[in-house]
Design a protein around this nucleic acid. Structure first.
Lengths: 190, 190
DNA sequence: GTCTATACACCGATAGAC
DNA sequence: GTCTATCGGTGTATAGAC
């Protein structure tokens, strides 16, 4: 079912769908909009996603987790000094959200009504990410408790500055927050 | 139109409606649900809010701004040392979101599709709040630039830890973040 | 794999009795 | 001020031709 061309097409298809869910949320995204941005008819969407809107969101969610993993969290495993890995993680997150101009689909769908099982999956994923971040903080010399706190604080700062920057309509605020984080990670291990 | 009893009733009415918008978002909240939680028929809701769902959200939004102002930001104007006012602001925010168990309606509706005018109103409100926070930080001895950064960082931390704590289903994470903020505000001016 | 046409439920909203 | 009944519109989803 997946020819070489269709693999690329599927990526652009998913990307178009993602745009709608990002800006409208799960409930706000309608099949009419989803069909329009993809250039397909509604019925054609059901060929690609027999489960309808719920399946689209599910696929996009897994996709977003994979992308964020690849863009950001994978860098925690590189063969570099711990502090440098943390800095590169921050940069990866920065890139994933397009420097504050785009929201994170996981956060968008995680607050919504996609069902308890999905929320639990997202929570599990976040717990894993926090653990891994804490592990790297430990490598920089922090005690476990402090490392855990730093990991939580880092994620909170990234998502929080993304949120407030978007509420304000000023992506620059997010960029400045990222810059500060980079700086503080630099200083901590200078 | 507003007898003494109806004033109290209106508060509980608004509170019920708020619960639906908080958990379902604007698009996700249906008139059927809104009617059910209030114990009224759909048609009766239109007596209280002739503008329908949009008016309910608008009223609730203004209400939330007023509540957050009263619970938290008003404390920045008290006759106390600046650092103590900041600490009391944090505690007020903590109380407003019920120690991390409840989301902030402004953040929920702000990301949504309530129209450009509302988003601009929310952005303006946040800018004002940031300015006022920065002003108090200046009073603690910080230079304007640093004060502005601290204000942005404080709001980002509060909203970010609220977001991540809720994604994780662990309000305790928010409470710990609040505790840390209090502590750092204590140390900064010990 | 995409389309047109359509089913059918539910949405927001209104009419009008009480 | 609340209700029942109902409207028109749109939402998700499907049938079936091509």
């Amino acid at each position: 079912m997946a020819t070489i061309r269709s693999v690329r097409s599927r990526e652009t298809l998913l990307s178009s769908l993602q745009g709608v869910f990002l800006s409208k949320g799960y409930e706000g995204a309608t099949l009419t909009q989803l069909a329009r941005v993809t250039g397909l008819g509604k019925a054609s969407l059901y060929h690609h996603f027999p489960g309808g809107k719920a399946e689209m969101a599910q696929v996009l969610l897994r996709d977003a987790v994979a992308q964020l993993e690849q863009s950001a969290f994978a860098r925690l495993k590189e063969n570099r000094p711990a502090a440098e890995r943390l800095r590169r993680f921050v940069d990866g997150f920065d890139a994933y959200v397009d420097r504050g101009r785009r929201h994170c689909l996981i956060a968008v769908l995680g607050q919504g009504s996609l069902g308890e099982r999905h929320n639990e999956m997202i929570a599990e994923q976040f717990r894993d990410w926090q653990r891994r971040l804490a592990g790297v903080y430990e490598e920089t010399g922090l005690k476990p408790k402090r490392a855990e706190r730093s990991a939580q604080a880092l994620l909170a700062t990234l998502y929080g500055s993304l949120l407030t920057a978007r509420l304000l309509g000023e992506p620059e605020q997010f960029q400045r927050a990222v810059k500060r984080q980079r700086k503080s990670l630099q200083d901590a291990t200078a």
